[in-house]
């Protein structure tokens, strides 16, 4: 069982934004689905997934980078060669 408060907290952690009008719907759906997932909790061992392949590495070689123009071409807002983003302070 998860509460509306849990869902709000998680939505905040995920920066997805939830309206008050949606919170009940999301809470009910998540509750139902997480309850369904609870079948997993009946498993008692925590056996990690076996991965046969390992040490897939590349050599330390430099290849050409994108130009500044290419790097910025999809950005919504740029300034002096930088990406423009919201404030953090």
């Amino acid at each position: 069982m998860v509460t509306a408060e849990d869902v709000r907290k998680i939505a905040k952690l995920a920066d997805v934004g939830i309206d008050d009008s949606e919170i009940n719907e999301f809470t009910n759906q998540c509750s139902g689905i997480l309850e369904y997932f609870a079948v997993l909790d009946t498993l008692d061992q925590n056996q990690p997934l076996i991965r046969e392949r390992y040490n897939i590495l590349r050599d330390d070689e430099v290849l050409p980078s994108l130009s500044q123009e290419e790097a910025l071409q999809n950005a919504g807002q740029t300034e002096k060669g930088y990406f423009k983003a919201p404030r953090v302070m």
Binding site: A11, V16, G17, I33, P86, R87
Partner: peptide, 30 residues
Amino acid sequence: TLKSWHDAYSDQRKAGFGKEVRRRIILGTF
């Protein structure tokens, strides 16, 4: 860029993702 980053991102992602995507992001974050 008027709001600080978490709020700005939340607005952006609420408007940009459909409901099923947001639902799965929430489930995965849980």
